[in-house]
Design a protein around this nucleic acid. Structure first.
Lengths: 260, 260
DNA sequence: CGCGATTTTGAGAGCCGTCAAGATACGTGG
DNA sequence: CCACGTATCTTGACGGCTCTCAAAATCGCG
C-alpha cells in the first residue's frame, strides 16, 4: 500500500490518495442513508478533497473564523456550541456520522458557533468555495444540502423545546433517548450498549442545567431502572418508559436520509 | 381595477390576479434584501401562486400536517412553536417580512412545529411540489433557499443559548433587542417606536420562563431606563446598554440577505 | 356597561444553582 | 509497581431564583 500515512489534523492531498474513496464510503453501507446514483457519486468524489483525523477535545471549527473547509462526519462524535463572554457554554447539538459541518459558515460568512470533537473522528473534507458548483451541476445534491440544513433545524427545534419547557428529569431522559435513537439508526449500538463519549458537564451544558444538578438528576433517572450509564456506556433497558419520562411522544424522524 | 377581492385565508387564483406581482414586491424596496436578476424575478413570478391574508391568532401551519403550500412573509408577524403533550409551549422563533415558512415540511415530510400569526399578515403562496423546480432551473435561488435555512438555524442557535444559559433579565433584554434589531433592518421602526404585537405570555413561552416571572423581570428591565414597552409599542432608549444587559456582544447579522 | 384577555402584585414553596469537600478514575513520571 | 496530579463523578448544605397559586387592576371590545 503506497497510500500516504496521515498525521493528525493534516489533510490528505489529491483524490488519488484518499484513504476512503466515496465508492467505498462506510456510510453507504448503512441503510439509514439514501442511495447515490452513479452520477451523484461521481460528482461527490470530485468534490471531496481528502480526509482529516481529529482527536477528542480538538477544535474542528472556531467561532468568528471562516474556515475554507466543510466536512462530513465519517466516524466519531462531535458537538456544536456557543459561549457567552463570561464563559457560560451552551451545547447546541451533537454531530454523528453522516452529519454535515460548517454549512452556516459557507452560506453566511463567519461562523457564530464552534465545533469540537468528542471522540476520535474521521472527517471528509470539502472546499467551501466548491459548494456553489453543487448547485450548478447537481441539483439533487443541492437539494440534499438543503435537506440537511432543514433537518438540523428540526433537531434544534426539539432541543429548544427541551431546554425551554422540560423539567430536569425530562431533559436528561430526553437527551439520552435522543442520542441513543440517533446512534441506533447508524448501527452504533452493540450488544453491550452504546459508547457515549460525553462527560456530565457536556450533558449539563446541553440541557441548560448545572453540573451538580445534572448529576443528581441522572441518579434519579437511573433509579427508575429504564436506563443506565456507567463508564461511558449507555444502556437502555426500557425505551418506552424512557420516552415517556422524556415526554417524547413526537413524530419519528424519517428513516432514510441523504448525506454528502 | 378588476383584481379579485380576496377573503381572509383564501388564495387568489391565477398569476394574472396577483395583488402584488413580484416586480412590485414591497420587500424589494428594502435595502436589507439582495437584488434579483431579471431572470430570477421571472422565475419567482412563475413560482408564486397567489397571496393569502391572515388574521392575528390564525394558524398558518399545524404540527403533524403536511401543507401543500410554502409561504414567504410579505407583511406582518408570526411565530413558530412546539408544544408538549400537557400543553407547555415553546416558541422557537419569530417570522418577519422576507422570512420563508414551511421549508422543513417540504424537505422532510410532515411538520413537527406549528406557525401562528401575531398580526394581520400578507403571505406569498408557493406550491410545495414546485420547490424541486427551483433546484433544476435556477441554482442561484436554490442556493438562497439553503441560505435561508442556514440563517434560520443561526437564529435558533442564538435562542438556544439564550434559553439555556442566560439569566431571566438577560433573556428578556436579549429578545427585545433581537426583535428590535430584526425589525429595524426591515424599516419597521418608526419615530414612535416599534409596534410589537406580542403579549407577555408570548415572551414567557419564548424564553422558557413563567408568565409571572417574565412580568416581574420586565419591570426590572424597564427600571434600568434603556427600554420601554407599553401598549404594544417598544422603544429602545439605550441600545448599547440593552445589548450589554443581554450579554449580546455577538457578530452582527449580514446586512443584505436573499428572499424568495 | 360587562365580559374576557392581559397585566400586575403579593405570598409561599420548591426546584435548581452555588459552594465545598470527598471519592473515584486515569494518565504520567519516578 | 507505586506516587501523584488532573479530570470526573458524587454527595451534602444552603441560598435564591423562578414557579405556582391567588387576586386585583387594567385594557380591549361589543
Amino acid at each position: 500500500m503506497d497510500i500516504a500515512v496521515e498525521r493528525r489534523g493534516r489533510r490528505v492531498a489529491g483524490a488519488a490518495g484518499l484513504l476512503v474513496p466515496c465508492t467505498d464510503c462506510p456510510l453507504r453501507l448503512l441503510d439509514c442513508f439514501r442511495e447515490f446514483t452513479a452520477e451523484e457519486l461521481d460528482f461527490v468524489q470530485g468534490f471531496k478533497q481528502g480526509e482529516r483525523l481529529v482527536k477528542p477535545g480538538e477544535p474542528i471549527l472556531l467561532e468568528q473564523t471562516s474556515s475554507p473547509h466543510l466536512y462530513t462526519v465519517l466516524e466519531g462524535w462531535a458537538f456544536r456550541y456557543k459561549t457567552l463572554s463570561d464563559g457560560r457554554r451552551q451545547i447546541l447539538n451533537y454531530l454523528l456520522p453522516g452529519d454535515f459541518i460548517g454549512l452556516q459558515g459557507s452560506a453566511l460568512g463567519n461562523l457564530d458557533h464552534s465545533v469540537e470533537a468528542l471522540s476520535d473522528m474521521m472527517l471528509c473534507i470539502f472546499n467551501r468555495r466548491d459548494l456553489w458548483s453543487v448547485y450548478t451541476t447537481t441539483p439533487s445534491l443541492a437539494f440534499d444540502v438543503t435537506w440537511l440544513a432543514a433537518h438540523e433545524e428540526r433537531l434544534l427545534d426539539a432541543n429548544l423545546l427541551t431546554v425551554g419547557r422540560r423539567t430536569a428529569i425530562e431533559r436528561v431522559a430526553y437527551v439520552l433517548w435522543h442520542l441513543y435513537d440517533r446512534a441506533e439508526r447508524r448501527g452504533m449500538v452493540t450488544a453491550r450498549g452504546l459508547v457515549l463519549p460525553l462527560t456530565q458537564q457536556h450533558l449539563a451544558d446541553t440541557l441548560g442545567l448545572s453540573l451538580v444538578h445534572t448529576n443528581k438528576t441522572l441518579r434519579k433517572l437511573r433509579a427508575t431502572g429504564c436506563v443506565s450509564w456507567h463508564d461511558h456506556v449507555l444502556e437502555v433497558m426500557d425505551g418506552r418508559k424512557l420516552r415517556h419520562l422524556a415526554k417524547a411522544d413526537e413524530a419519528t424522524i424519517p428513516s432514510t436520509r441523504p448525506f454528502i
